[in-house]
């Protein structure tokens, strides 16, 4: 247990090391979540709008 506490203390630099890694994790996960959310939002909107275009089949749809 003592070793663990010593490890987390990072030789006295804990206040700097852990926030750095926290920032890295926050950036990576934050960008990922933001990207996934906007992909989902666009997909949902597209489905809704395609549902309201009755006489156009998927194959003919312009891109």
């Amino acid at each position: 247990m003592r070793n663990l506490a010593e490890y987390f203390a990072m030789g006295g630099y804990a206040v700097y090391v852990w926030p750095s890694y926290a920032a890295a994790v926050a950036v990576l996960i934050g960008v990922l979540i933001a990207s996934l959310r906007s992909l989902r939002a666009r997909s949902a909107e597209l489905e809704a709008i395609e549902g309201s275009l009755p006489h156009r089949s998927r194959e003919e749809r312009p891109t």
Binding site: S35, S43, L46, L53, P62
Partner: peptide, 22 residues
């Protein structure tokens, strides 16, 4: 992430076209 975001942008462009046609 880039591939994911480009896919989103392609969908967004498709959406704009469809809305315009609508």
């Amino acid at each position: 992430i880039l591939l994911l975001r480009i896919r989103t942008e392609i969908l967004a462009r498709k959406l704009r076209t469809l809305r315009y046609m609508q």
